[in-house]
Structure formats: structure tokens, C-alpha cells
């Protein structure tokens, strides 16, 4: 497929693929590569299945679940009902009589937005810095590596706290980026060393000899090799953003306009939920939500290697 972008005169042996691809073929190939094959592999791997189920469940709750539920208000039910007592309030209520299940569902969307924007930021910046540094020799590499090392060393959470207080961001997407502000160092450093060895491969040398532009080599020859690792990193970064955001909301240093799990955790903790069993369910459910989502992400990320492994893929094509 990549031959299409190279002019025929650039090809040394003058042999060009003579099969034309219709757009239906392209769609079918893409569908096959990105939906069918991963799906088939996933069915055979119970860990991937569980992970996918959990993450998908959270996505469902965060998008459609919010539409299905009425927002809860104070004195919706009695104060501090225990979990699983009535169907009206399956997870119980807080001391103000608000329904915990509804609070949890409404708290999902801002958290997911934060995780997604933060994870995306880390992966994009880390990939660009890492691959460019690894592929270019000399000054540029040195400069980018130094910046990476600095980002790696400055402690993230204090930086985020200081920035959050001075900048006071409001939207979950911006907060997500802020939380990820120096999380890309590890990915960049690792990708750089991977690129250093890929650079020496024969096919990269061949592409270089054929005068293929550098960005094409990076996109078509170098990047696909590292996709599993990048995807893996995307998921663990999202987990990092999740932990950081809930932790900082608990500390009360992040500004918020909507309630989310972190805010709930903070309210429960300050409300004394840790002191007695009768209030324990109040703090338990935000905790369960965070830990379950994190397990889902880990299981899914552990299976990314399988999804991209050409040997495993070949069996399912």
C-alpha cells in the first residue's frame, strides 16, 4: 500500500504493484485490521475480554448513563441509607440524602474526559519528542534528550499543584492536560532508545537510500514498530492521570464545577466516613470505581502486546 505514494521512477527495479485497490477494498482491509482481527484475538483471551468489558462499561456509563438518570438533589432519600437496602437507592445515600449511584454516574464523565485528554497529551508529546530525538543525530537529539530528562526529574504532583493554584483551570480537558504536563518523559526516553535500534534496520536504510522523506520513514517504517508500546503507555498514562486527579481533588487543590469521584471522596473523608461502619459505604463506592477502572485499564494494556503481535495476528486473519 505504501508503494502508492512513491513515484514509479524512484523505484530502482521498476516493478510496481499492478493491482488497483478500490475504496471498498480499503474499507474492508481497515475493518479487518482494526476491528475483526483484534476482536477475534480478544475473544480467545479472557483478560483482554474483562479489561475491554470494564473500560467499555465505564464509557457507556459516562456517555449514555448520564442521559438515562435524573440528577439527584438533597433529601432525595433518607440520610445515610446503607447500600443494597432499597431499589430506589441501590448504593445508599450520603448524609444529605443524595443518591450515591447517581452521584457516581454523573462523576464518571469529567473523570473520563480528564483521563483521555491527559493520556492523549502524554502519548502525542512523548512520541514526537522520542522519535524525533532518536532519529536525528547530534544537536537536536541532545537538546530533546536534555528537555526530556528535565521533565522526568521535576516532581509531577507538586508542579501540578503549583500550576493549578496559579492558573486555576476549569474545564476537565484542560485539567487533564495539566495533570499530564510532565508525564511524557518516560515514554519519550524509552521510544528514543527503541528508535536508535530501529534506525539501524535494513528496511530503514533502504528507505533512506531511496530518498524517502524522513517524515514518511518515521510514520510508515519506524512508528508501526512501536505502536504496542505507545498504546500500552496510553493506558498506563490514563491510569496515572486518574490517580493524580482523584488524589488532588481529595486534597481540594483542583477547582471543580461538576462533582466527580475525587470530590465525593473528599466530601466523604471530611464528613468522617472513615470513622464508623455506618458511613463507610459513602467513601467505599468512589474507591471501588477508581480501582475497578484501573484494573480494567491494566488488563487491557497487558493484552495490547498480543493484539499487535504479528505472529498472533496471522493466526486470526
Amino acid at each position: 500500500m505504501s508503494d502508492a505514494s512513491v513515484d514509479s521512477e524512484d523505484i530502482p527495479l521498476e516493478v510496481v504493484s499492478d493491482v488497483d485497490q478500490t475504496w471498498q477494498d480499503t474499507v474492508r482491509n481497515l475493518l479487518n485490521a482494526y476491528v475483526l482481527v483484534p476482536g477475534r484475538i480478544m475473544i480467545t483471551d479472557y483478560r483482554a475480554l474483562i479489561g475491554f468489558g470494564i473500560v467499555f462499561g465505564y464509557l457507556f456509563v459516562g456517555t449514555i448513563g448520564v442521559w438515562l438518570m435524573e440528577p439527584t438533589t438533597m433529601w432525595d432519600g433518607e440520610r445515610l441509607m446503607q447500600s443494597f437496602e432499597t431499589w430506589d437507592h441501590p448504593l445508599g445515600t450520603d448524609p444529605q440524602g443524595r443518591d450515591l449511584l447517581t452521584l457516581m454516574v454523573y462523576g464518571t464523565r469529567p473523570i473520563l474526559l480528564m483521563m483521555f485528554s491527559g493520556g492523549l497529551f502524554i502519548v502525542v508529546v512523548g512520541t514526537i519528542v522520542g522519535t524525533v530525538a532518536g532519529f536525528s543525530r547530534g544537536r537536536l537529539d541532545q537538546l530533546l534528550s536534555t528537555i526530556t530528562d528535565v521533565a522526568l526529574t521535576i516532581p509531577g504532583l507538586p508542579l501540578v499543584i503549583v500550576l493549578a493554584v496559579t492558573l486555576n483551570p476549569q474545564s476537565p480537558i484542560l485539567i487533564g492536560v495539566l495533570l499530564a504536563i510532565n508525564g511524557w518523559g518516560g515514554l519519550a526516553r524509552n521510544l528514543r532508545s527503541q528508535v536508535l535500534s530501529i534506525r539501524e534496520e535494513d528496511y530503514v536504510e533502504a528507505a533512506n537510500a531511496m530518498n524517502v522523506p524522513t517524515r514518511h520513514i518515521l510514520l510508515k517504517d519506524v512508528l508501526p514498530n512501536m505502536m504496542p508500546y505507545i498504546l500500552y503507555n496510553f493506558m498506563s498514562s490514563m491510569r496515572g492521570v486518574l490517580f493524580a486527579s482523584v488524589g488532588l481533588y481529595y486534597l481540594g487543590v483542583l477547582p471543580y464545577s461538576q462533582e466527580n469521584w475525587g470530590v465525593l471522596l473528599d466530601q466523604a473523608y471530611t464528613g468522617g466516613a472513615l470513622t464508623t461502619w455506618s458511613m463507610f459505604h459513602w467513601i467505599l463506592w468512589p474507591i471501588v470505581a477508581v480501582v475497578t477502572l484501573s484494573i480494567g485499564l491494566i488488563l487491557l494494556s497487558q493484552s495490547t502486546d498480543k493484539l499487535f503481535n504479528p505472529r498472533v495476528r496471522a493466526r486470526h486473519e
Binding site: 522526568l152 526529574t153 516532581p155 504532583l157 518523559g185 518516560g186
Partner: peptide, 17 residues
Amino acid sequence: YTGLLIQIGFLFGGAVI
């Protein structure tokens, strides 16, 4: 070791919480 370097920063940051 790369992990350790990140871990030191992470722990000092986490100390706030």
C-alpha cells in the same frame, strides 16, 4: 533504573497526599 528515577519523583510528589 528508569523506573526508580521516576519513582523517586513520584514518591516525593505523592508525599503531599
